[in-house]
């Protein structure tokens, strides 16, 4: 829901950096967006095109890498994927539910990766 403000921030940050480096044009922007971030990638791409219009970013390629979720258990040290528990007993088909419960023990996991919205790198044309 806040894709437009976050994307505007992305564009502003890239423009600032490009200017700092005296770039003539931005060719490529590489983002990393975690699967647990609440940003919809389609919306990010859509508003990106609107915000870059009339700037040195116009026509640039936006490449988004989706990052998997990595969790760590504070009790048993488990490190790995998020686990999905079943929720049954509803009058709907059983749905998987995200849980912070450790898949190995009774502990609670911490989310280590998968929440980021990272501007990883840019491809620029020099001055």
């Amino acid at each position: 829901m806040h894709e437009s403000s976050v994307t505007r921030q992305i564009v502003q940050t890239v423009l600032q950096e490009a200017e700092k480096h005296g770039a003539k044009k931005v060719l490529e922007v590489n983002l990393v967006i975690g699967k647990l971030s609440l940003l919809g990638l389609e919306q990010v791409k859509f508003v990106y095109e609107i915000f870059v219009k009339g700037t040195i970013m116009e026509g640039s390629k936006l490449l988004i890498e989706e990052r998997d979720v990595l969790v760590k258990c504070n009790s048993c040290g488990y490190e790995g994927q998020f686990s999905y528990g079943d929720v049954s007993g509803y009058q709907v088909p059983t749905v998987p539910i995200m849980t912070l419960q450790c898949p190995k023990c009774e502990g609670t996991v911490e989310i280590v990766e998968g929440r980021e919205c990272l501007i990883k790198s840019l491809k620029l044309i020099g001055p």
Binding site: I10, V14, C117, L118, S121, G126
Partner: peptide
């Protein structure tokens, strides 16, 4: 043409 590493997490 050159690459610039940024690593800025908004």
């Amino acid at each position: 043409i050159y690459d610039l590493e940024l690593s800025v997490d908004l």
